[in-house]
Design a protein around this nucleic acid. Structure first.
Lengths: 194, 194
DNA sequence: CCACGCGGAGAACGGTCGTTCTCTCTGCTG
DNA sequence: CAGCAGAGAGAACGACCGTTCTCCGCGTGG
């Protein structure tokens, strides 16, 4: 989900790669500009030419992570046949994400918890990310013949799985979420029994 | 969920109240010891006599918040009749929590995102909190005649609702989670249709 | 009334961090 | 070859923060 390091082409990409990895791995406030300089090999002066402040760099990293995360999810899910399969694919993708060794939860949730109260920018980027995810899920759900309202419920399962996997350190929450999602999907597609 | 301020009896309680509110509202790293001194009215010297370091104070605040949060939930839910009602009560309680004006998500999720990578203590407290919540939920679920495995699924819904309510700023995620929980609970109590 | 010790207020210290500045080197232009 | 624009390395600066220290007032015990 993030190219590892320093050999990318443009200085801008090197900075975003290094800063993205550091911010995600250690938290926003815990990473100093000097650590980003060291990890990216881009001098401090150039760094401030590319981004006028640390806040701007944080925002750029978050926006790029949003785009890449949603692209990766969509590439994975859209490879499955449309319908219920494609909805379930979301949870398979989460499972494989959780198993990545440097998985540390949702960058947007973490950033919001750290700076959301102080930075309206960070809060807005986090909201936008979650909205976009929910919209994507809504497309999958209606494509499976289920009412759009189901997407909100599945989004809650996915969020809960991400948070729980991060804190517990295991990938099983994706499996539990997938089981629950299947029950909800089947109940929503077939009319309820009573 | 947190007494507001400065007039509590013992200096220790004043410190924990003030620090708890500040940490939760602004984040751990964003609150300096001097702000805690000002908000609690307890001198810096006495503060360091009570807690040898900021880390120790953070840990004490988190542990107290864990105990109070789970007590409040249990008091609310255990007032309902045992069975499915009591399981659903969890989501009603979440809904009223989300509507509190200073609600800012789960303190343990926020703290984990901010410091979990750097502080094993914070990570452990967060894990313990989530485990305890899941155990409590398991008791409610089995008391409603549903298999214990359902508790994990409902915990994911609750976590997702907390995170989503924090970022979106609204309380509706509790309602969506409750609807989903009811479907899962009914499917788990009655044998599945197929 | 006097010596004393405890507690508060706030200065001080050492370290870190975001941001800027200086100095030097390099490679190009006329 | 002379001069210059740009870039890198790293020092410098100002602010903040966790922690400790100093100083002073005050109440207590003899």
């Amino acid at each position: 989900m993030e190219t590892t390091a320093t050999e990318a082409a443009t200085p801008e990409a090197r900075v975003l790669d290094a800063a993205g990895t550091l911010f995600y791995g250690r938290g926003l406030q815990a990473v100093g500009m000097d650590a980003i300089r060291a990890a990216s090999g881009v001098s401090l002066k150039r760094l401030y030419q590319l981004y006028p402040s640390k806040d701007a760099l944080v925002e750029a990293c978050l926006r790029r992570r949003d785009a890449r995360w949603r692209d990766a999810l969509a590439r994975y899910a859209d490879a499955r046949p449309a319908g219920p399969e494609r909805v379930m694919a979301v949870f398979d993708w989460l499972h494989q994400w959780f198993e990545e060794p440097d998985f540390r939860g949702c960058a947007f949730v973490n950033s919001f918890g750290e700076l959301g109260a102080a930075s309206e920018t960070v809060a807005a980027v986090a909201r936008a990310h979650k909205d976009a995810f929910r919209r994507y899920l809504t497309g999958l759900v209606t494509g499976a013949g289920a009412p759009a309202a189901l997407a909100d419920q599945l989004a809650l399962l996915a969020e809960g799985a991400i948070v729980t996997a991060a804190i517990s350190g295991g990938a099983e929450p994706a499996l539990r979420a997938k089981e629950a999602a299947r029950v909800l999907l089947e109940a929503a597609v077939a009319p309820p029994r009573s």
